[in-house]
Design a protein around this nucleic acid. Structure first.
Lengths: 343, 343
DNA sequence: CTGAAAGCGCTTACAG
DNA sequence: CTGAAAGCGCTTACAG
């Protein structure tokens, strides 16, 4: 514990060379004689030398760290994202500084500034539905920032986004092709940009294909409990509606809400109402016989984001094209009219 | 991007004080006149000053970072743990360096050394079933290490562990009290210490309460697929067994395997075999009507681990008692004989 | 309560 | 290919 740490000077002395040579040897610079390098590396290992990262970053102006700033997300989603980032980070010799759990957009910006001196760049997952101008300040920072899922273009920042709007439309097409006509939407938090894009997909599809239908949007907040409430609202609404106007499918903004919707509907026996979700969390496959969902490959998004930020850092190049990832429909039993009708 | 960063000297000059005073004011040292502090803080904010973390750690010998080294874990488990750590980290002004995805024990040790100069201490979650001696080297490092779930005492390292053995015994008691007699165990990876402790609980309970019963241990690897295989093995075994020796309950080492076991058994219709898991992942509640499980409060473990390491760092004290967390039985329908018999 | 100065452990032009 | 030296931006005894 209280051992005086071994420094580059100790290694230099022991190896009989200058500290400059040790530094070059250990950092794989080309201008070192091969035998010298081998010798220095051996001595360093023997002395159990660990370079002081702070000192190194002070003189090299590089921290070899990537910052990841995440919102208050729970579960599989966040861990898959981190896993994706981590994969790249390891293979490129960077370390990961993670900061999660932020309540507001301001809070989030503060966190980004706060970690700025510790990292070479940051990956910011921002679910807030803020105008582009709100991001300007972050785009002007001294380190590159890659923005995930902001759903709004920001000059000076590379963006990686899931095409939530497109995925939403694709889900609607699926529901329509399965024969559903009176489709309701179980919405997410009002200030969440992803939720809003999905809602927009629903609205635009309905306007296009069912121009005379009454839109049925139910408020929710991503939680299973809010889905349960929506389910019950739908049940009581359907009682009042004439047969041909009753809701026959619920497109849920995320899988957890679909779980809640189903819990409410299932209590009424075989309801025959189609249910779909979004995100394709691992649970989806096992939810009431299989929940139809849209897979967003969040692991891939994490990888991509990290590749981009590493590239910007290493090449000093900021003109990297944005990336949009298309989600993939995973049809399962929950929207299959055939199996619904059966029992 | 290419703006010269503002340093402590710029702030000092602008505020008309020495850099020493700026440093003291910004670090909340007591020996600064209140008005001076206020003034310095104002100037710093005005200049958008961000202290260089590397320089700071070089002279103060503190990084204000906690390292978290995680095994190749997927899912909710890891994110809950990180969330627990992050909660404490934020409230105490530390940052989080996370390194996940490590294949072997050696790999893991290398990672710990690798991040050592960047952190003030590390939280190491080690699922490997290694002898205490293997950890010695890590206990001798220059920074404190808190060990999670190693299931073996290591001198010089504080440990936070889930009582997997006790939880396993408690689960067996539950199964016995529900009336199950021929209980099988679906095991996890052979080199996983947590899995082995749970298996040990099963073995010892059986030896104590059913000394003449034949132990039925089926190999698995935590995955749903391996659970499915186990389920099928049980089905074919039961066909050969006389009525009174047939397996009537399967205690699975984790919830995902329980999911697979059920998938196999369910294909044979109402099987009447009790199934229980371990970990109580969020999905458990929704798995085939409710899976009986043991909740391990991994969020709490993360919090506790971080509190301990922060304490050691701040107080310089290494004699912190180990912490053992008792899991909690969550009985659900999957082990309820009454509801099993019903259909 | 404040400042001048040393020093933390590296990296990197610069000169050879 | 190598070394001497400057300097990165802080913190912290030390002296006052």
């Amino acid at each position: 514990m209280a051992v005086p740490p071994v420094t580059i000077r100790d290694v230099a002395k022991e190896a009989g060379v200058s500290v400059a040579t040790v530094s070059r040897a250990l950092n794989n610079r080309s201008n070192v004689a091969p035998e010298v390098r081998t010798h220095v590396v051996a001595i360093a290992r023997e002395l159990n030398y660990v370079p002081h990262a702070g000192a190194s970053s002070l003189s090299s102006r590089r921290t070899n760290m990537i910052g990841v700033v995440l919102p208050a997300l729970h579960g599989e989603f966040i861990s898959e994202f981190i896993r994706g980032v981590d994969t790249v980070t390891r293979e490129r010799g960077f370390h990961l500084l993670i900061s999660s759990y932020h309540e507001s957009f301001e809070d989030q910006s503060a966190v980004v500034r706060n970690i700025l001196s510790r990292v070479d760049g940051v990956i910011l997952m921002s679910p807030f539905d803020e105008p582009a101008v709100a991001y300007r300040e972050l785009a002007d920072l001294s380190k590159p920032v890659v923005l995930i899922n902001a759903q709004v273009p920001v000059v000076g920042m590379v963006q990686i986004s899931v095409d939530n709007f497109g995925g939403s439309v694709a889900m609607m097409e699926h529901l329509q092709s399965e024969g559903y006509r009176n489709i309701a939407f179980a919405a997410g938090p009002a200030n969440n940009s992803e939720a809003n894009e999905r809602l927009r997909g629903y609205r635009e599809f309905m306007a296009m294909h069912f121009p005379h239908a009454q839109l049925q949007v139910f408020d929710g907040d991503f939680s299973e409990a809010s889905g349960f409430r929506v389910g019950n609202e739908i049940l009581s609404l359907n009682e009042k509606l004439p047969q041909d106007q009753r809701i026959d499918a619920v497109f849920c903004v995320c899988d957890m809400m679909a779980l809640g919707v189903n819990r409410a509907l299932a209590s009424e026996g075989a309801h025959g109402i189609g249910i779909s979700g979004f995100d394709d969390i691992p649970m989806a496959e096992h939810m009431f016989g299989g929940l139809t969902s849209m897979a967003t490959d969040i692991f891939g998004v994490g990888k991509r984001a990290c590749e981009v930020i590493c590239h910007i850092i290493r090449e000093g190049e900021r003109l990297v094209p944005d990336v949009t990832i298309s989600p993939r429909l995973i049809p399962r039993q929950s929207t299959s009219k055939a199996s619904k009708a059966a029992p």
